[in-house]
Write a protein that binds this DNA or RNA. Structure first.
Lengths: 145, 145
DNA sequence: TATCATTGCATAGCAAACTATGTAATAATA
DNA sequence: TATTATTACATAGTTTGCTATGCAATGATA
């Protein structure tokens, strides 16, 4: 019984993800952000002043992961948290000027990386690849439940 | 400027990897192992008594990551490290009976997960998908250098 | 209204990845 | 041979993911 990594979807997916996140890490380091902050920033660039719960609904991470990420973002001067006007349990999350200012550069960096790593695939292949990933993601979400 | 996650290779890859590793974590928990130990176990099941350096050459992680993983595996009773007969800096890594005994179940679990998550893809689509991943991995390794 | 359940968020603890650096031991060389 | 370089591995520190749990505030209900 052999287990060939190059024919294991799980192995390839994991390997690809780790390589990609390290490329992103290097490229966005000059902006003063790290990969884990990216999804939260994307959401906040679209809509500012959300509560953690509202932000969480836009992302695919667990609540505790987001809470910790937000704490680091606040430490790094990307956001501030203000008390919620109507609910003392909640806080609203606001981009700082710093957090706002890196938006375009961050978008461009992420878009550029996607283009570069897919450069060897034709447009049809790229669409097929993205489609497969969406289907597999859907399947995993079925399977795990 | 919008950033659509479902059309971002980076986002999809990361999401898919996290979902997959959690499925693997749940399924192999009864065996007393965790996902990060899997690659090292696969290599040791093929060839036992390697040095860390030799094992490292068979894997795709950094040396420090492997050293820590091996420490946890030793703690968990999966391996023991013995002093190298000829080089006092090195240690040879040996599966325990426990580490050896879970081999078939672990293989089957991993194979099963791969089959399940790819179940919605035809054989041709699966081969295309694996091929795209191999090509993208190759491209990332070019890009990052 | 007093109690109980739920909600929003934070914290603790672990895994697993990374880079950077430390520490011996071994090998190479001046 | 004494010094220097290299090698093998370990450790420190950070990020980012997870689950489990705690705590205070809010909402529901007896």
């Amino acid at each position: 019984m052999k287990f060939d990594r190059m024919n294991s979807a799980g192995y390839l997916v994991n390997n690809m993800a780790r390589l990609l996140v390290e490329v992103l890490r290097k490229r966005i380091a000059p902006l003063g952000i790290v990969p884990g902050q990216f999804p939260a920033l994307l959401a906040l660039w679209e809509k500012d002043g959300l509560t953690q719960k509202e932000l969480l609904a836009m992302l695919d991470v667990e609540q505790a992961t987001l809470a910790n990420t937000l704490t680091r973002m606040e430490r790094d001067g990307l956001i501030i948290r203000k008390e919620h006007p109507a609910d003392a349990r909640a806080r609203t999350i606001h981009l700082t000027e710093e957090g706002h200012s890196i938006r375009d550069a961050a978008y461009q960096t992420a878009t550029r990386i996607n283009e570069e790593v897919l450069d060897d695939l034709s447009d049809e292949e790229t669409q097929a690849f993205l489609g497969y990933m969406r289907r597999v993601i859907g399947k995993i979400k079925e399977v795990e439940s």
